[in-house]
């Protein structure tokens, strides 16, 4: 890229994806749990009241985790191929989730 430089692995993976190259899946994924500072991608979630208010990281991570980085056929439109701007208006899912677009019909 000419104007924006991808500095770390994650940025390079995003760049590879933008160029249509196969991104380094490891760099895009959540890292596996390890030792005292483990990470974990729990899947699509709601909070104890079946809402979103009680969530912070998981909801947002999953939402984008499912749609963008490692697309898998969940209830989330895939950003990788069919719906690139799907979640653009929703930078904080907990707060802005109403602003996520509807997807009608198939791609």
């Amino acid at each position: 890229m000419k104007h924006v430089k991808a500095i770390n692995l994650r940025a390079q993976a995003l760049e590879a994806r933008a160029k249509g190259e196969l991104p380094d899946i490891y760099a895009l994924q959540m890292q596996l749990p390890m030792s005292c500072s483990t990470v974990f991608d729990p899947g699509w979630e709601v909070d104890g009241m079946f809402g979103l208010a009680g969530l912070c990281q998981p909801m947002e991570n999953d939402l984008y985790g499912c749609s963008a980085d490692c697309w898998w056929p969940a209830q989330v439109p895939d950003e990788l191929v069919n719906y690139p701007g799907w979640s653009d208006q929703c930078s904080a899912a907990v707060r802005d989730w109403q602003k996520i677009k509807f997807i009608q019909g198939g791609p």
């Binding site: 770390n8 692995l9 994650r10 940025a11 993976a13 760099a27 959540m30 890292q31 596996l32 749990p33 390890m34 030792s35 005292c36 500072s37 483990t38 990470v39 974990f40 991608d41 729990p42 990281q57 998981p58 991570n61 999953d62």
Partner: peptide, 23 residues
């Protein structure tokens, strides 16, 4: 060393640590 490694990978963690899950 730990911090640079996390930043390099662009780590995003939904839980503070693996306590109760992987640890």
């Amino acid at each position: 060393a730990n911090l640079l490694r996390e930043l390099h990978r662009g780590e995003r963690r939904p839980y503070p640590c693996g306590a109760g899950l992987g640890l």
